[in-house]
Write a protein that binds this DNA or RNA. Structure first.
Length: 815
RNA sequence: GCCGCGGUGGCGGAAUUGGUAUACGCGCACGACUCAAAAUCGUGUCUCGCAAGGGAUGAGGGUUCGACCCCCUCCCGCGGCACCA
């Protein structure tokens, strides 16, 4: 027997599979489909490190297993090549982004091909291909048509390093997610997508998804639903009122002042009324200059100014209350105005204390109160005593029974929210934290937004037949920093005619963000070459939705929200059949460097998969990465440990020497292995699947022989994990077609049970011995055997009071 | 602060979801083969103890014949949200 030469074997089969187009996918009515998708990579200049393929290995194993189990599997790959990373790389290396991307893709592809993935490369897509982004632009126009894409001049987050506007999702705290620079607020014209129209559905449908709880939770937090009421406080001697938003209308009787956000529109209208306008104006000015960072730093410190001469009226009791402007109220949320209830809200309490304002409690806590103090409340539930209590302990933000609330006294706070709102003519309202998606970037390397600006007609959609609007060649593609994209300087491209009136028009020069192309790419794989329609309806119906989606958890509140939003929109305009794109999602845990840090060129700790493939082989790499630990968990790479999987494959290689005809001794373990490997793959528990394969191999070696049929079954179980070595061994058995087209072995449930069992004997909760017995031994027999055994029965001192027998598992005696 | 996930040998991690804790692998130690080394194979490897036994799944309590698993109170790590009314 020649020794295991991984390099030769792997090259041989990769070439052959490719030539035979083994993994080509077509729609087939006779088979159930399974769509297995990886989050496609940005082809960055650094190339793949050893962590990138982890997810791809998992989906490859999953796909191969599904194929062998009779499914028609769609398993494609492509490139998310627009956006800042690609552009920044190009700028740094002084090459055109298009050239850089082409080069990087070639490099990525070469690296991937060495690992033996079963992608259908005929469906390869690239978001920067005009034939691809034609449809990205098309979707944008459909949204524009429906009023979901609109122009806005609101101040947005601006990264002073990347020189572009950003969406909320592009921030980490208040830093640019790309470069870590603290963002500024900048008022520039921009395109915005109305994702907030979908907030409720995006939230509701989370429940239907087979996704990790942590990602679902992140999305719920990101959408941030809260239910409350909008209530108007009239302003004395004035015909306008202040519309406030509160989640606690039940505390309306406790409202002792009103606060407006500095940017509130009422400020201008009340200008003449406000006696101390210069002070107020100064405060507003200062607030606008404060960065978000300053605001957060001084979270505890509440600042604000009283609007002298302005008095609001609490609609529930006609009480006159003062009005403040303070930056602890945010203009972007709710109505930008609140009623302040210092007795029952931390922030209002802090502000009231600072400014010495009235604090009036109207809700009595339910339990959990210092008994002495609670007595104070119960004996005399008056404003005074409650206020004393609150001053002593701080605000009570829970629910309870109302006091000092007129007709609502003694009712539970939860029960009166709607009643009180109704009484004052307010309205129950639901608010979301989610903001509309700032969709324009002032950068070169992105999809041009297909809009033409006309002085007469306003923004006009580029007619569908004129798509794609191709990104023009440009001499300088560096960002300008002016709020205009580099495209603005190409007059010949910018100046065009208005499609509506044929007058002079100017093209929109902003481009789309990084996330545009990836928001629908899962659909492009279904019909990757279609240039006449978005996607063939029959094909879409056949493949949709994605059955298994695998990628990093860092996309929880970015790509995964955007893609759900676009998909729902496409569902609404009847382009797709399902309202959710990704039925099941697994997230892949990072592979960290040996030093526990992220792998990065910067730290010089990158392990290149090419080296591992060359030295240990792709099959070893695959088995190792799956064996390292639970799939979703991060683990540190450890080149020392990779020897384990390598030795395992070498031992598998030697197995061919001990294949015999007729030997039944491995039946039970074989069927257990078939069962466990299959269910583990389905559950993404690859580490225990590999471990079970190792256990089986250990048993075979102990047995010193394996019969042909068991060997065949074992090879098939290993095939998804180590496709090359198995294919070689399969061929050596005399087979002429690929093992990867073979059916997955089935297990026989009756053979899972071994003839004998060993039953631990517990006496008063401690294991005192083992009873080796035939399967299905009765309780009486076990007890008899215990009595016979001196080493066990010596522990029985006194009467047996209770016997718990779990058949074939355990017996427990209580003395 | 709120929410979610987690904490098991020297290391990565198993444990059929309440039934022999530490599978599988790495590392380490010893042995075989060898002139020698590598490779390979074998044995051992949670801890205290000569042993009989005892103790241990972040800490402490509880439920149970029996708890890594369920309940309560804490501690630590990771992730999301956070002046969102």
């Amino acid at each position: 027997m020649e020794s295991y030469n991984h390099e030769q074997i792997e090259k041989k089969w990769q070439k052959k599979w490719d030539e035979e187009k083994l993994y080509l996918t077509q729609e087939r009515a006779d088979k159930k489909k399974c769509y297995v998708l990886d989050m496609f990579p940005y082809p960055s200049g650094e190339g793949l490190h050893v962590g990138h393929p982890k997810g791809y290995i998992a989906t490859d194993i999953y796909s191969r297993h599904k194929r062998m189990s009779g499914f028609n599997v769609l398993h494609p790959m492509g490139w998310d090549a627009f956006g800042l990373p690609a552009e920044n790389f190009a700028l740094k290396n002084k090459v055109h982004p298009r050239v850089a991307v082409e080069k990087n893709i070639a490099r990525f592809k070469e690296q991937l091909s060495g690992i033996g993935f079963s992608y259908d490369w005929e469906r390869e897509i690239n978001t920067t291909d005009p034939e691809y982004y034609k449809w990205t632009q098309w979707i944008f126009l459909k949204m524009f048509e429906q009023g979901l894409a609109y122009e806005s001049h609101e101040p947005i987050n601006w990264c002073p390093t990347c020189l572009t506007g950003l969406a909320n999702e592009d921030l980490e705290g208040n830093e640019c997610e790309r470069c870590g620079t603290v963002v500024e607020k900048k008022p520039i014209r921009q395109w915005v997508l109305k994702i907030t129209d979908y907030a409720e559905r995006l939230l509701e449908d989370i429940e239907s998804l087979d996704w990790p709880e942590s990602i679902k939770e992140s999305q719920r937090n990101w959408i941030g639903k809260s239910e409350g009421a909008e209530i108007t406080f009239n302003i004395k001697h004035h015909d306008v009122g202040v519309r406030i938003f509160t989640t606690r209308p039940d505390t309306l009787y406790g409202a002792t002042y009103i606060v407006l956000a500095p940017e509130h529109e009422l400020m201008d209208k009340l200008k003449v009324e406000i006696k101390n306008w210069s002070a107020v104006e100064k405060y507003i000015q200062e607030a606008s200059e404060k960065s978000d960072l300053d605001r957060q730093k001084n979270e505890k410190e509440k600042t604000g100014v009283l609007l002298e001469g302005v008095v609001a009226i609490n609609p529930v009791n006609n009480e006159e209350v003062p009005v403040f402007v303070a930056d602890y109220v945010l203009s972007g949320y709710g109505t930008g105005a609140i009623m302040a209830v210092p007795a029952h809200d931390e922030r209002d309490f802090a502000f009231a204390k600072e400014k010495n304002l009235i604090i009036r409690g109207v809700v009595v806590p339910e339990g959990n109160v210092n008994p002495e103090d609670y007595e104070l409340l119960l004996v005399s539930p008056t404003s005074k005593s409650v206020t004393e209590y609150i001053l002593k302990y701080g605000p009570y933000t829970g629910t309870g029974y109302l006091i000092d609330s007129g007709e609502f006294n003694n009712q539970k706070s939860e029960d009166v929210k709607e009643k009180i709102t109704k009484k004052v003519g307010g309205e129950m309202k639901t608010k979301y934290r989610l903001r509309d998606w700032v969709f324009s970037r002032q950068r070169y390397w992105g999809e041009p937004i297909p809009i033409i600006h006309c002085e007469k007609c306003g923004p006009v959609a580029v007619p569908e037949e004129d798509l794609p609007v191709v990104l023009p060649e440009v001499e300088h593609y560096e960002p300008t920093g002016t709020g205009e994209s580099p495209l603005a300087s190409i007059d010949s491209w910018v100046n065009t005619t208005c499609p509506t009136c044929n007058g002079a028009g100017k093209r929109e020069t902003n481009t789309m963000p990084q996330w545009a192309g990836s928001s629908w790419y899962h659909l492009r794989y279904i019909d990757p070459k279609n240039s006449v329609e978005f996607a063939d309806k029959e094909k879409e119906k056949y493949w949709s939705p994605v059955d298994m989606y695998v990628g990093g958890a860092e996309h929880a509140t970015r790509h995964l929200i955007y893609a759900r939003f676009w998909h729902k929109f496409l569902f609404d305009i009847k382009e797709v059949n399902y309202s959710e794109p990704f039925k099941r999602l697994q997230h892949v845990g990072l592979i960290l460097a040996e030093d526990g840090r992220k792998m990065s060129k910067r730290y010089g700790n990158v392990v290149n998969p090419d080296d591992i493939v060359h030295f240990y082989g792709a099959d070893t790499l695959r088995v190792y990465e799956m064996f390292m630990g639970p799939f979703a968990q991060s683990v540190s790479w450890n080149t020392e440990s990779i020897i384990g999987p390598r030795k395992f494959l070498e031992r598998v290689w030697r197995l061919q020497e001990i294949v015999v005809e007729g030997d039944d001794s491995l039946e039970t373990i074989l069927h257990k292995t078939i069962q466990k490997v299959g269910s583990d793959i389905e559950n993404f528990a690859f580490n225990t699947a590999v471990s079970q394969l190792m256990i089986f191999l250990n048993e075979v070696e102990k047995n010193k022989k394996i019969r042909t049929s068991s060997y065949v079954a074992f090879l098939k179980l290993l095939a998804p994990f180590a496709p090359h070595i198995v294919e070689e061994l399969w061929e050596k058995m005399g087979n002429t077609s690929s093992v990867h087209l073979e059916p997955w072995p089935e297990y026989d449930a009756s053979k899972l049970i071994s003839d004998t069992v060993s039953i631990p004997v517990q006496i008063n909760g401690k294991v005192r011995g083992l009873i080796e017995a035939d399967f299905d031994i009765t309780e009486e027999e076990v007890l008899a055997r215990i009595k016979k055994s001196a080493t066990i029965s010596r522990w029985i001192v006194g009467d047996i009071q209770k016997v718990i027998y779990v058949p074939n598992k355990l017996i427990s005696l209580v003395i």
